[in-house]
Structure formats: structure tokens, C-alpha cells
Write a protein that binds this DNA or RNA. Structure first.
Lengths: 235, 235
DNA sequence: GTAATAGTGTCTCTGAGACAATATGAT
DNA sequence: ATCATATTGTCTCAGAGACACTATTAC
């Protein structure tokens, strides 16, 4: 028995969000999951998503993304949202032929989570150590792949850090995203470039790190944009 | 009156292909358009596309792409197909709320076109000098943008040239895609890199160009893959 | 002072841009 | 030989990798 008006029409188109954050305690990336209320897979942890075909109030796909972001499934500000792709086939949803348009999103602020929400290690979800229903594991893997490739030649990982951060914090987040050490001297060059280009500004403030000399901070002047470098980090 | 079973259900999800080719006579990129048979916009030139919701035989979205490629709307081999994005809103189709998942495709072989098909200058379609129905002009613009950005750091433009080509031809296609001159010496370095990486091989053959010294040709050993360079072409 | 980490200086190396110099085939 | 274009050689320059060195705070 179909459980939604859209499924009754034999087709489902959903949008699904991969909301990532950087956990400073574990120094690892985490992904937001929701405990599903409705069938199928009620009670399982899955990506937050909504159906966009059928009688929805949204005027555009982006409106639907914003509605999902505002809903209790996400319910937090997002520093970045980017469409990654659309998959569709006859098997991924037991109800009917379905497509999913899925997004990479980045949350920089820590917020109180609801009962049905949880952040899980991205690594475990991407490699399916933590199994999700539908094909959500492969969507997460694709999102991780996108994040990694963009980290090579853009400032995207800085989105995890919020509007004010230090060079060592930048080194950390790039190292975590790329899964390998990044030299502070390379990072410094890149931050300098971004400053020259008007993306960053010295604040004059400092924050104390893990003991040792305090860290100077910079302010993100264009928090909604990523800067593109003309070279990649090398292997 | 809705004109398709899917529209009758109040929602349409289509896939649309932007099939590009390089016209050696005009030294410009061209895009494949179809004269629409069905309403809406019957008789207008538009992107080849098919509906994927409703009762389709395809098991996956990729199957649907292949069905479209095989159909009379496209009907030619494609050297490359890449999903670019999905747009959806309440206005783009006069019939109902609709989404389009659209693709960048590259044709390297010249083929005989059907009556209802035509290749048009990409530039004119992307900047809407040639107006297309729906939001197809903006889809084409997004595809052009993707092609341009990938041309900076990948070998993608070589897909236009087919399995055997020369260095001057490579310089040409990159210049056309990027819309600015590319130095043959930079191209040479990149082709060398690709040869070392096992993507290209010297054929020993030559082809005569526009008079002058004949051009040595290379063979594409991995015609289905693009090579990623670790630096961008600079401005 | 010492410890611990932040930030700087400098060297090498790769590959793009620029352009001069040489090679090759048609005529 | 001459012409037209292909191919090679060489130089500069930006930025990544590497690592030593200096600076700044807490104690």
C-alpha cells in the first residue's frame, strides 16, 4: 500500500541533504541523520529528505531545500548548500520508481539536536560501516567525494569554521577533509592569497589554542563564497 | 488538457541532453537541437529530452539517458556524457510543476542528421540570441559553464577530437572552449604528461594540416576517461 | 627561564606563460 | 630554395612541499 500521494502516482522525487559538520573533539567530520518516522524503514537512521513531486507548496527546487532546512528534520543554519547530483532507478525505494536529488551542506554552528536527530561519523556512513536505508550510503559517498575534490582547489573546507578562524584551524580542517597532513606554510600562502583577493581580513584578535602561542584570527568577508585557487594540493 | 500520462499526474521529470560538437569549418562549438513534435512549443527548436516519470521501461536514470541517446532525437554515438544538474520549479513547463535533470554530452563523429535535428552555435544558444522554450537557454548556459571550468584543469575538451588527433588540434579545441588563445608549448607539456600517464600514445602517423609541416598524431588510449591536471590554465 | 605552539624565511621543484630557434613537408 | 606551419629549447615566474628558524604566550 503506497504511503504517500506521490507514491500512489507510481513515482517519487525527493531531495536529500547531507549536512556535514566538523567535530572539534574527535577532529572528524560528521553527518546529520534522522530517525525515520514513516514507512518504509521507520525507525532507521537516514538522510533528511522530503518529497518534491505531488502537491507541494514549493515554487522551486531551491524553495523545497529551504523548506527542508527549516523543518525539524534539519532545523539549523547552513553555511553552504550545493547540489551534487540526481540518481533514479526502479529499485532504490521499495514503493516505486524514485529519484533523489541530493545536496552537500555544511553547518558551522553547533546547535541543540532534537530527539530524532543525530550526527554520525561521515567516514563510517560513507564506507557503509553504518548502513543506511535506500541507497543513502552511496549518496553520502558521492558527497564525500565532491567535498574531497573541491578541497584540493577551493576554500570550501573553511565553511566548517564559521566567520572567524585561525590559520592552525584552517590547517586542521583541510587535513581532516583531505585525510592527510597539510603544511601550515602552504595554508599560509593560500590564506594570504585570499586576503589579497578580499575574501579574508585580519581581525587583530587572537584566540588561545592548546597552550603555546595564541592564534591570530581572520574574518571571512565573503562567508557565502568559496575562493578558487589556481593550483591543487598535490598528492 | 495534459498531453502526457505524467503531466496528468501533475508532475514531470525529464532528462535533457546538451550534445555538443566541434565544427571544424567555423571553428566553433555547436549544440544539437530538435524541432519539437508535441505540444507545448510544437515546432520550436529545443533540447532533446524525454520524460522519466510515468510508465517508462527504464530501470535507471542512466538507462533513460541511453534510451534517449539511441532515439531519433539524438541517434549518434557520444564520446562523453556527464550529469550537470537538476532544476525544478512550478513555471518552467506550462503544463505543471516539472524538473529537468540535464547532461553535458560530447559528440566527436560527424553524422547525418535527421530532418528534425540541427546543430546551432553554442554561443548563440547559451547567451539566448537563439531563444529556446522552457528554461532550456539557462540549462545550456550551465552546461557551457561546466565545460569551461573543466577545460581549465582537465583533458575534457579532447573528447571533441575523437580517438586520434594532433597537438595543433588540441591547441585549437582548448582555445575555442576557453575562448582565448592557448600556447602550444603549454599544450605540449600537458600532452606529454598524459602520455607518461598512459592516456596517450604516439601513433607514428602524421596528418597534413593547412599546408606547412604535417602534424604528428597521438592516439587516445583511454577514450572514456578524462585526465586531471594538477594546475589550471591561468587567466 | 622552559615548554609548547604560532608564525616566518628560504630552498627546491613542477608546470604555465612567453618567445626564440629549429625541423619538416609541399611547392 | 622558399613558404608555412610543426616541434623543440630555454627562460621567467607563481605557488606547493619541505623544513629550519624565530616569536609569543603560559607556567
Amino acid at each position: 500500500m503506497p504511503t504517500s500521494p506521490a507514491a500512489a502516482r507510481g513515482y517519487l522525487h525527493t531531495i536529500d541533504l547531507c549536512v556535514l559538520r566538523f567535530c572539534r573533539e574527535t577532529q572528524a567530520l560528521e553527518i546529520l541523520l534522522n530517525r525515520r518516522e514513516a514507512e518504509p524503514f521507520a525507525g532507521h537512521w537516514a538522510l533528511p529528505g522530503i518529497v518534491v513531486n505531488g502537491d507541494v507548496e514549493d515554487l522551486t527546487l531551491n524553495d523545497a531545500v529551504e523548506r527542508l532546512r527549516n523543518s525539524s528534520k534539519v532545523g539549523m543554519p547552513l553555511a553552504w548548500i550545493e547540489q551534487v547530483g540526481t540518481v533514479g532507478d526502479a529499485f532504490r525505494d521499495p514503493r516505486c520508481w524514485s529519484s533523489s536529488t541530493f545536496y552537500l551542506a555544511i553547518a558551522s554552528e553547533a546547535v541543540q539536536l532534537a530527539e530524532h536527530q543525530g550526527f554520525f561519523p561521515l567516514k563510517d556512513v560513507a564506507d557503509a560501516s553504518i548502513k543506511l536505508p535506500f541507497d543513502h550510503n552511496s549518496l553520502v559517498a558521492a558527497v564525500q567525494e565532491r567535498l574531497l575534490s573541491k578541497a584540493l582547489y577551493s576554500s570550501l573546507p573553511l565553511m566548517f569554521l564559521g566567520p572567524e578562524f585561525s590559520a592552525p584551524e584552517a590547517v586542521d580542517i583541510f587535513s581532516v577533509v583531505l585525510g592527510r597532513p597539510v603544511l601550515k606554510t602552504s595554508m599560509r600562502q593560500r590564506l594570504l592569497k585570499m586576503t589579497e583577493a578580499g575574501y579574508l581580513q585580519e581581525t587583530g584578535r587572537k584566540k588561545s589554542g592548546d597552550g603555546g602561542r595564541p592564534q591570530r584570527t581572520v574574518e571571512n568577508l565573503k562567508p557565502a563564497s568559496v575562493y578558487l585557487f589556481d593550483r591543487c594540493f598535490l598528492e
